[in-house]
C-alpha cells in the first residue's frame, strides 16, 4: 500500500473526500508556510492524495506546516489539511528528537514531564543553538515530580 493511502487511513478522511477540492488555491494564498519564503501549495498535496501518488517527506508543507488551520478556515470545504500533514509525518516517521521525547514521556507517565523531555532533547538543543535562549526561559522552569497516571 502506498504511504499516502496509509496516511489517509490515519485521518478522518477517505481518499475520495479530496475529490471535492475545487482547485481554488485559497489554501496556498493563506498558508503560513508561504510566509517563510517557501513555495507551497496544499491543493497540490490534496490532488496527489486523491490520485494515490506519494507525498515526499521533504515536501515543504510536510516539513514546515505549523498546524495553524488558516487553510481550513479559508477552504470552501473546510478540509483539515494540518490533520493530513500530521498523518503524513507519522507514516514518514519524521519526528524530531523533541517529539520522540514528548511521546516517550507520555508512554512512561501518561503525561508530559518537561524535565524528562528536556533531558532527552539535550543533544538536539545543544546542536540546534537553543542554549542562547535559556536565559529567557528561566521563568518557565520549576521543580516538580512527575505524576504517574494509573493504567486503565
Amino acid at each position: 500500500m502506498p504511504k499516502t493511502d496509509h496516511a489517509i487511513e490515519l485521518t478522518d478522511y477517505e481518499r475520495q473526500d479530496f475529490s471535492v477540492c475545487l482547485g481554488c488555491k485559497i489554501c496556498a494564498s493563506v498558508c503560513t508556510v508561504n510566509d517563510l519564503d517557501l513555495s507551497t501549495n496544499p491543493q497540490e498535496m490534496l490532488q496527489k492524495l486523491f490520485l494515490g501518488k506519494d507525498v515526499a517527506a521533504d515536501d515543504p508543507l510536510v516539513r514546515f506546516c505549523t498546524g495553524c488551520y488558516r487553510c481550513t478556515g479559508a477552504c470552501p470545504w473546510e478540509i483539515r489539511i494540518p490533520d493530513v500533514v500530521r498523518a503524513l509525518r507519522q507514516v514518514h516517521a519524521t519526528e524530531s528528537p523533541f517529539e520522540k521525547a514528548f511521546k516517550g514521556s507520555v508512554a512512561i507517565w501518561g503525561r508530559v514531564y518537561e524535565p524528562y523531555v528536556l533531558m532527552r532533547a539535550v543533544p538536539f538543543l545543544l546542536k540546534g543553538g537553543y542554549i542562547k535562549h535559556m536565559m529567557r526561559w528561566m521563568e518557565y522552569m520549576g521543580i516538580h515530580l512527575p505524576h504517574k497516571v494509573k493504567r486503565t
Binding site: L10, T11, D12, A87, L88
Partner: peptide, 10 residues
C-alpha cells in the same frame, strides 16, 4: 496528556 498535536493518528 491530551496528546497535543504530536499524534498523526486521529
Amino acid at each position: 496528556c491530551c496528546g497535543a498535536f504530536e499524534y498523526g493518528d486521529r
